[in-house]
Design a protein around this nucleic acid. Sequence first.
DNA 1: CAACGCTTGTGAATTTGTGCACAAGCGGCC
DNA 2: GGCCGCTTGTGCACAAATTCACAAGCGTTG
Lengths: 217, 217
Amino acid sequence: MSKDVRRIPDATIARLPRYHRALLELVATKASTVSSDELADLAGFNAAKVRKDLSYLGTYGTRGVGYDVDNLRRQIGRELGLTESWPVVIVGIGNLGRALATYSGFATRGFRIAALLDADPSKAGSPVGSLAVRPTSELVAIVEAEQVAIGIIATPGAAAQDVADQLVAAGVKSILNFSPAVLSVPDGVAVRGVDLAVELQVLSYYQHHRDDLVVSA
Amino acid sequence: MSKDVRRIPDATIARLPRYHRALLELVATKASTVSSDELADLAGFNAAKVRKDLSYLGTYGTRGVGYDVDNLRRQIGRELGLTESWPVVIVGIGNLGRALATYSGFATRGFRIAALLDADPSKAGSPVGSLAVRPTSELVAIVEAEQVAIGIIATPGAAAQDVADQLVAAGVKSILNFSPAVLSVPDGVAVRGVDLAVELQVLSYYQHHRDDLVVSA
DNA sequence: CAACGCTTGTGAATTTGTGCACAAGCGGCC
DNA sequence: GGCCGCTTGTGCACAAATTCACAAGCGTTG
């Protein structure tokens, strides 16, 4: 009895945030409508992809005119679940954790930092931005009290799996992992990893093979 | 007259760093050989993908046995161009830039931070880790002196394109962009972007649609 | 030295994603 | 009201990536 479960391709979902951000910029300008071509430019893709991606969400464009900036932004936001800001916890308040805690982009793009946690008791109480660092033992209470669904891991790799287990036990269903460790979590918990060194190594590959690529014919 | 230009799929290249890291861990243990199955576990993929990926590099496994840990690590490192450490510059020494500057993962995985740069002259001279922050005006000199090929942008979005232009003008050929801005660069320059909020928003999508996905039949 | 268990390497099938090209349709203009 | 320019939405062909399934081959054991 499930209606038509509109299945949006993963590749499209990964691009929606970029559209969303581009539209936020457009809102700031006077622009009230935008064409797939312009949006492609702003988001860094091509027009055909933009149209196909947006078509999965529904028919929000007007032929001959383009897309209504404000409406489209709202639709994408709704699809991404950004209608109200998600509370997130950051675990591991080293240099990276501190940087994430003070990153303004989270607040402006749909997220609210509910708490900063660190296993090191000597860090507890010290302020980072407007929040104080709290001991990891308070995790369960915080997650429950604030209905936290997303956790960010910014610990060293060695501690990451342990923290992940605690997050899962506390009821967190989505994890963003900045440590280089590969996490194993039960079904139903989503994990996304960002490994800073991995990104550099990929660049290193293309840098290293630049000349190969030019060779042809 | 180009020999066989072994074209490695982009998707594979993006996974090579994960294999490389898993192998580094294996080297630390006693393990001298590893099967595609184990490696898949450690890197977070599946065995078939591992074997196919590795087959693009050459025939480094032994049937019935597995892959020689040390040799495979060396081969992947060579392919990624990690035989000696690349000098990188970090531009934009805010919270994120500072975190990147002190991130130990870069040093252990093939990169050396050649300089920290910031446009704000009041930051110049202040030490971050073992390096002093230098004004962006020194960029050209540094890139030339140290043969820097990779630049990391950790500025706010508004400054990112400007910094990218300067990096390109200085001769940097690969850019890792942590700002949310979309950069435009000439052909021949590689850009990779990591937008922290984008990753969270993708998680938000799956969190938000968790129930839809379970609905079936 | 033959048989066996184990693991790689890879063709082939399948799934997923991309890009083209054009019909459909809106809005303005004469 | 009809024509025209512009931009969406999408069917289709192609390309890339994933997964399956199995033959090839190594090493060990009796």
